[in-house]
């Protein structure tokens, strides 16, 4: 059986909000090391990979592997019934067909319980190759989100170029073109505003901005984001969690 407790429901609410627009039904695999999810978005352009390590829970128990087949939107709907600072417990018996969620307000002696029906989902998993990326950029998650939002007013695609001078985002559409360039920098006072670039060779890739905008909904999970790119390959975009991560593998636009 699975029993996992979080001190604040907001932790799971934010994670589910970060993936719900992309995913429909998918399996969450639970074992003694934690919870994991891997699923493609409906258009197969983004692969979402979530890892919630058992250390990230205030209490965690999973004696035997449990697969939770869930509709992510249904999970989001139920989580909306929890207050952000409620204590949240996830429970599922072995071979059960439901996930039990309890939301506790320790101050008000309130306990709510919801049973979410589980589904049998026949899901395929992809082998994510171990890759040495040509460029790795660590930057503020909020700044990346804002930059992409600004450029989405111009075009449905953004081109990202990374070289030793910095990272450049550009877009061109009917009304004109625009770009934002960031140089590598260290901000001693606000470390999350630093821009760190590690490069083995310059790289340039183009991406759909609507999907990128969905990915950056994870900005509430982490102050920084790690963007990794290699020419002609999907980008890896990672938001770190206290014990785990949300990663997105994002297929680029490619010249014929």
């Amino acid at each position: 059986m699975l029993e996992a407790k979080l001190d604040a429901a907001s932790q799971l609410k934010k994670i589910v909000e970060a993936i719900r627009d992309m995913l429909g039904e998918c399996n969450i695999e639970c074992n003694e090391t934690g919870l994991a999810l891997q699923s493609l978005d409906k258009s197969h352009i983004v692969l979402v990979s979530l890892l919630l390590g058992s250390d990230g829970f205030s209490e965690y128990r999973c004696d035997r592997g449990v697969t939770l087949g869930l509709n992510i939107n249904s999970l989001a709907t139920v989580l909306r019934c929890a207050n952000n600072d409620d204590i949240l417990t996830l429970r599922s018996e072995d071979r059960a067909n439901e996930l039990i969620l309890t939301f506790e307000d320790s101050k008000a002696d309130r306990i709510s319980e919801f049973n979410l029906r589980l589904m049998d989902i026949d899901q395929e998993y992809l082998a994510i190759p171990e890759t040495e990326y040509a460029a790795t950029v660590v930057m503020s998650a909020a700044v990346l989100q804002r930059t992409l939002r600004d450029l989405s007013a111009l075009s449905e695609a953004v081109t990202i170029e990374i070289d030793k001078e910095g990272i450049r985002f550009s877009a061109e559409g009917d009304l004109g073109k625009g770009s934002t360039h960031f140089k590598p920098c260290v901000d001693m006072e606000n470390a999350e505003n630093s821009i760190n670039i590690t490069l083995s060779e310059p790289v340039s890739l183009s991406f759909n901005l609507q999907y990128f905008s969905n990915i950056t909904k994870a900005s509430s999970l982490s102050s920084t984001v790690t963007l990794q790119m290699t020419a002609g390959m999907p980008a890896q975009i990672e938001y770190k969690l206290p014990s785990g991560h949300v990663r997105y593998y994002f297929a680029p636009k490619i010249e014929d």
Binding site: L40, S43, H44, I45, V46, L47, E124, Y125, L126, A127, I128, P129, A157, S206, N208, M233, P234, Y249, A251, P252, K253, I254, E255, D256
Partner: peptide, 14 residues
């Protein structure tokens, strides 16, 4: 114009 690739063209099924 460039075409949108899918993840399936890069990552194989397990």
């Amino acid at each position: 114009p460039p075409k949108q690739a899918t993840i399936m063209s890069f990552f194989a099924k397990k």
